[in-house]
């Protein structure tokens, strides 16, 4: 089941509460968890742990990198019931996976919807999270993204190689960032019966809107209230691409307005010539920034 076609070390398959879960667990030291974006049953895009491929090696040379295929995505199984296509079930699955791996408090690095899940875990389980790195955290930001415009008319057939290439190329600053290996992973995930089932489940009974989006917007409001009233419970680094075609940089500025009043250790890093996947377009710079940030916030409460 687990595929390790990527340059990320060997994939492991864990049984997490009956859900087969693909995990990469590389390197030693400070535990840094990478949470990819997307949601189960997306009919246009494919997201999985493989998105982190360009940074895993650099990070794993210094810290313990854990990359998880989230519930209903990549090579991890789908939620056990249609009612569980929610951000709560997805966050719970990440927490259970880390517990199963025997990890203590971790640094969570999340991309878009993965950043949302990371913030949600930090709010619900502050004892499990040392710091947050929120990359292109559009799902966490009030306001909308430009996906509905930019990705309105994908080439057919949907989620074929040609279509997936188009989706990635229109998300990046440079089309050169889209390599064949990245596409290999996306195509392989799209072809799994598991993914097709997730797409069908989300489309049946308007489940995407009535179940997934409902859970997401409700939780998002709750997290915004926490940000406003007491702040996120841990140091937080926001990372964004200046040229993001999907998540405008203005949303990063907006998120900073929400985060800064109550969390002193809030920082923002913006990379030029970077789109929706800044860690793929500037992997070395991104790795350095994450490494130094997690080192500075690994247990020290008194950083100046």
């Amino acid at each position: 089941m687990a595929t390790d076609v990527l340059d990320m070390g060997a994939a492991r398959t864990l049984d997490v509460g009956g859900i087969e879960t693909r995990v990469f667990d590389e390197g030693e030291g400070i535990p840094v968890v990478l949470l990819h974006g997307g949601y189960p049953g997306d009919p246009v895009e494919i997201q999985s742990a493989g998105v982190w491929e360009p940074v895993v090696r650099e990070l794993a040379a210094h810290v313990n990198v854990i990359a998880i295929d989230r519930l209903g995505q990549g090579f991890t199984g789908n939620p056990s019931s249609p009612a569980d296509y929610t951000v709560d079930a997805i966050a719970a699955h990440v927490v259970e996976t880390l517990k199963k791996l025997g990890k203590g408090p971790c640094h969570l690095v999340g991309h878009d919807e993965g950043a949302f899940i990371a913030a949600q875990i930090a709010v619900d389980h502050p004892d499990l999270v040392r710091s947050l790195v929120l990359v292109t955290a559009n799902a966490l930001t009030p306001g909308s993204d430009r996906r509905s415009v930019v990705h309105a008319h994908p080439p057919r057939p949907m989620q074929g190689r040609h279509s997936l290439r188009w989706v990635l190329e229109t998300s990046c600053h440079s089309r050169l960032a889209v390599c064949e290996r990245w596409l290999d992973e996306a195509v392989a995930v799209a072809a799994t019966p598991r993914h097709r089932e997730a797409v069908a489940t989300m489309q049946a009974d308007d489940r995407y809107l009535r179940t997934y989006v409902k859970s997401w917007t409700a939780r998002r409001s709750a997290i915004h209230r926490v940000m406003y009233e007491k702040g996120l419970p841990c140091p937080t680094l926001v990372v964004w691409g200046l040229n993001d075609p999907l998540a405008p940089i203005a949303n990063a500025e907006y998120l900073m307005e929400l985060l800064t009043p109550k969390q002193r250790d809030t920082e923002l890093r913006i990379y030029n010539s970077a789109g929706y996947y800044p860690f793929r377009e500037h992997p070395s710079a991104f790795s350095r920034t994450v490494l130094s940030f997690v080192r500075d916030h690994n247990g020290r409460k008194d950083v100046v």
Binding site: L268, R269, S273
Partner: peptide
């Protein structure tokens, strides 16, 4: 932010780091 936008036109390797408080 404006300075970043200005420099970003012709210097691909510009980044910005913002620190709170």
């Amino acid at each position: 932010y404006e300075l970043l936008r200005l420099i970003s036109r012709h210097q691909p390797r510009v980044s910005m780091h913002v620190v709170n408080q």
